[in-house]
Simulated scan of single mutants.
Amino acid sequence: MSALHIRREAAQNALNTLLKQPLATLMTIFALAIVLALPVGLFAALNNLQQLFGQWRDQAQISLFLHQDATEQDIQQLQKQLQGSTGVVNVRYVGKEAALKTFEKNAGMTAAIKILGENPLPASFIVELNPLSESPAALQAQVQEWARQPGVASAQSDLHWVARLQAILALGKRAVWILAIMLAVGAILVMGNTIRLHIAQRRDEIDIASLVGATRAFIRRPFLYQGLIQGAIAGILAWIIIAITIAILQEPVDRLATLYGTRFQLLGLTGLEGLILIIISAILGWLGSRLAVGQHLDHTFS
């Protein structure tokens, strides 16, 4: 009998065992799916928050004020450098006349400007950044480099909120990782306990098989497939739960975004991320089964 045939028989045996107890199997699968969906759903929420914060470009603006005697060549070179810099989403040039009109409109200083007899406002570049593209230190270093370019008189920025934002996201990621590890251990224990119940129901069969010369691997294999199958199905179900949750939340998110004059599409799991979830879930099921079966076989073969 070939190794492939033995494995196929073990997998069929495991599937038949699960189908004989559909209610217990479904309860185990749903429990695993919920345990998996919680941390993965939180990771998806963090990804959506990153996407949302990445759109706050108007809150991550850098103003580069130019010298009064900046040449056209200096302006063109600086604009080219800004547009090619990492994390830059948009670069907007504001000439002296445009700056004057904006100042008069917003500040109501038309009379004061007329008294001066000339335009005191410099031309400038307004640079919109993605606040999550780099670390705050890297963004600050980039701003300082721009401030040293020919034609630039000064740079104005407020990146303290970017540091706070990134610190909050980093804290959230670490908390979710801790939760994910704890729940992964819980998933292993749930599967181990389920397989232990199956072993108890087939204790006589296992004892007889060991007496007639069955190896540890032969006895263990069907139970490992049980854990693997249940884990994989739980991963698929967890993926479906996350997709349904995102679909339910999308409508109120659309209404909220409309009130702010914008649009925001919630991100779910990609195909690759879903596949990784299924694989990890199957591995967790396999590990739980292996621990439970290994403990029993140690006692049986001792």
Results as ranks from 00 to 15, higher is better:
residue 105 K to T: 14
residue 105 K to N: 12
residue 105 K to G: 08
residue 105 K to S: 14
residue 106 N to K: 14
residue 106 N to G: 11
residue 106 N to P: 06
residue 106 N to M: 11
residue 107 A to T: 11
residue 107 A to D: 07
residue 107 A to Y: 12
residue 107 A to G: 09
residue 107 A to R: 12
residue 108 G to Y: 00
residue 108 G to Q: 00
residue 108 G to W: 00
residue 108 G to H: 00
residue 109 M to K: 12
residue 109 M to W: 12
residue 109 M to S: 11
residue 109 M to Q: 13
residue 109 M to F: 13
residue 110 T to Y: 06
residue 110 T to A: 13
residue 110 T to H: 11
residue 110 T to V: 10
residue 111 A to Q: 15
residue 111 A to T: 15
residue 111 A to Y: 13
residue 112 A to L: 15
residue 112 A to G: 09
residue 113 I to Q: 10
residue 113 I to N: 08
residue 113 I to A: 09
residue 113 I to M: 14
residue 113 I to G: 07
residue 114 K to M: 12
residue 114 K to E: 15
residue 114 K to P: 10
residue 115 I to N: 11
residue 115 I to H: 10
residue 115 I to A: 15
residue 116 L to E: 08
residue 116 L to A: 04
residue 117 G to F: 09
residue 117 G to S: 07
residue 117 G to I: 10
residue 117 G to D: 09
residue 118 E to D: 14
residue 118 E to N: 14
residue 118 E to W: 13
residue 119 N to E: 03
residue 119 N to T: 05
residue 120 P to F: 01
residue 120 P to M: 00
residue 121 L to F: 08
residue 121 L to W: 05
residue 121 L to T: 04
residue 121 L to Q: 05
residue 122 P to K: 00
residue 123 A to V: 06
residue 123 A to H: 05
residue 123 A to S: 08
residue 124 S to M: 01
residue 125 F to N: 03
residue 125 F to R: 04
residue 125 F to Y: 11
residue 125 F to W: 09
residue 125 F to H: 05
residue 126 I to V: 13
residue 126 I to S: 10
residue 126 I to F: 05
residue 126 I to L: 11
residue 127 V to D: 07
residue 127 V to P: 00
residue 127 V to S: 03
residue 127 V to L: 07
residue 127 V to T: 02
residue 128 E to N: 09
residue 129 L to M: 14
residue 130 N to K: 08
residue 131 P to R: 03
residue 131 P to F: 03
residue 132 L to Y: 05
residue 132 L to S: 03
residue 132 L to R: 01
residue 132 L to I: 01
residue 133 S to G: 04
residue 133 S to A: 12
residue 134 E to M: 13
residue 134 E to H: 07
residue 134 E to S: 12
residue 134 E to R: 11
residue 134 E to T: 12
residue 135 S to D: 02
residue 135 S to T: 12
residue 135 S to C: 01
residue 135 S to R: 05
residue 135 S to H: 02
residue 136 P to V: 05
residue 136 P to R: 08
residue 136 P to Q: 06
residue 137 A to W: 05
residue 137 A to H: 04
residue 137 A to T: 10
residue 138 A to F: 00
residue 138 A to L: 07
residue 139 L to S: 13
residue 139 L to H: 13
residue 139 L to N: 14
residue 139 L to D: 14
residue 139 L to Q: 15
residue 140 Q to N: 11
residue 140 Q to F: 10
residue 141 A to L: 06
residue 142 Q to R: 02
residue 142 Q to L: 03
residue 142 Q to G: 00
residue 142 Q to H: 01
residue 142 Q to V: 01
residue 142 Q to E: 02
residue 143 V to F: 02
residue 143 V to S: 01
residue 144 Q to P: 04
residue 144 Q to G: 09
residue 145 E to M: 07
residue 145 E to S: 12
residue 146 W to A: 05
residue 146 W to Y: 06
residue 146 W to P: 00
residue 146 W to T: 04
residue 146 W to C: 03
residue 147 A to D: 13
residue 147 A to F: 10
residue 148 R to C: 07
residue 148 R to D: 13
residue 148 R to N: 13
residue 148 R to T: 13
residue 149 Q to W: 02
residue 149 Q to E: 07
residue 149 Q to F: 01
residue 149 Q to R: 07
residue 150 P to Q: 07
residue 151 G to R: 09
residue 152 V to N: 01
residue 152 V to M: 02
residue 152 V to T: 06
residue 153 A to L: 14
residue 153 A to N: 15
residue 153 A to Y: 15
residue 153 A to W: 15
